[in-house]
């Protein structure tokens, strides 16, 4: 088992290296001069030349890449071309907001999507199944950005009960000092007992939360259903029924454990999708996460920032897959 995990991590690192190499190459062929960006629009030719040397852009490609990798190993992702701040620091400020959204969506996907899939499989072709299938396939068919606009239209402009965007109301953030433990406002305010902030943050969370959670709930419910249906057809399930085991044991203990592998793969996959969806949703809800960060970075062609986000999401993706693979490897048949 240990060896298996080690092997997976090693492979993950190789893949990550590939991702970095490709992104790095892409940023080098972008028809834009980072040195010019660095010094700003009013700089002289000499200043740009100086910046080029300062940023190491005069070096051959391989050396630049080597330097990037060795900096990366020290946690240094370079400096943003726009703000001149370290990208790593900036990411640290933006990531918690995104993570908060993704975590919420994933939690909802697990506690709503999995039971929905199970009941759907249990009552196959009955009205509950039809309803839940319609919901789940509908949820994965909705354009996220449109749902976001739609919700804003209803709850902000028509009903006027929820805020338009942002993480917290301006007056609250001025009046109170925001707690900062994990950077996730809901969690931090709850832990520190600042309920005013919690309530405000929660209200801000509702619309983006629903928007982002729809897709993973639908995806997880669909996949759980089909995985479970396949397992319920297996001979060992028929066998355990033939021993007189009650249906709830068969379904909730036997079949569910068998479907753990496929379900965890789907949850991992859905986190990946959610991350991508938050990029869209953040733009609409003015949510200060990495989605916003990268949108701005793209407009400014801020390649160290773009790379930083790419590496972050690749690491998240690989880590999720690793976890899913480990859960699958817990299955005694493939135990290594």
């Amino acid at each position: 088992m240990k060896k298996y995990i080690l092997r997976r991590i090693l492979l993950g690192i190789i893949v990550l290296f590939g991702v970095i190499a490709i992104t790095f190459t892409i940023t080098r062929v972008i028809p834009s001069d980072p040195a010019a960006k660095w010094v700003g629009p009013r700089a002289t030719h000499e200043q740009i030349q100086e910046a080029r040397i300062e940023l190491g852009l005069d070096q051959p490609y391989i050396i630049q890449f080597g330097k990037y990798i060795s900096d990366l190993l020290h946690g240094d992702l370079g400096y943003s071309l726009r703000s001149h701040q370290p990208v790593a620091t900036e990411l640290k400020n933006y990531i918690p907001a995104t993570v908060e959204l993704v975590l919420l969506a994933t939690l909802l996907a697990i506690i709503l999507g999995i039971p929905l899939g199970i009941y759907s499989a249990k009552y196959k072709n009955r009205w509950l199944d039809h309803l839940s299938r319609l919901f789940s396939v509908g949820a994965v068919s909705l354009p996220t950005f449109w749902v976001a606009l739609f919700l804003q239209l209803i709850f902000f402009s028509k009903l006027e009960i929820l805020p338009l965007g942002g993480r917290i109301s301006t007056n609250i953030s001025i009046m109170y000092e925001l707690p900062n433990i994990t950077g996730m406002l809901l969690f931090d305010s709850l832990v520190t007992g600042k309920f005013m902030i919690f309530k405000d943050a929660f209200l801000h969370m509702i619309l983006p939360g629903i928007t982002v959670a729809l897709y993973p709930i639908g995806l997880v419910a669909r996949m759980t259903r089909s995985a479970l249906l396949e397992i319920l057809n297996e001979e060992y399930i028929v066998a355990s029924r033939s021993y007189g085991l009650p249906e709830k044991t068969v379904l909730w203990i036997y079949a569910l454990k068998n479907s753990l592998g496929p379900t965890s793969t789907v949850v991992a996959l859905s986190v990946g999708y959610t991350l991508m969806n938050t990029f869209l949703v953040e733009a609409i809800f003015s949510w200060p996460g990495i989605g916003r960060y990268i949108s701005d970075a793209v407009i400014g062609l801020d390649y160290p920032a773009i790379m930083g986000v790419t590496i972050f999401s690749a690491v998240v993706y690989l880590a999720l897959n690793l976890i899913a693979d480990i859960i699958i490897a817990l299955d005694p048949r493939v135990r290594v």
């Binding site: 992104t23 892409i26 972008i30 834009s32 990268i294 062609l301």
Partner: peptide, 22 residues
């Protein structure tokens, strides 16, 4: 399969951003 993994770990959006940028 390793090449496949590399491409799978790019969020499609980021890839699109990169291509749009180039």
């Amino acid at each position: 399969m390793r090449i496949t993994d590399i491409f799978l770990s790019f969020p499609p959006l980021l890839l699109a951003i990169a291509i749009a940028a180039v």
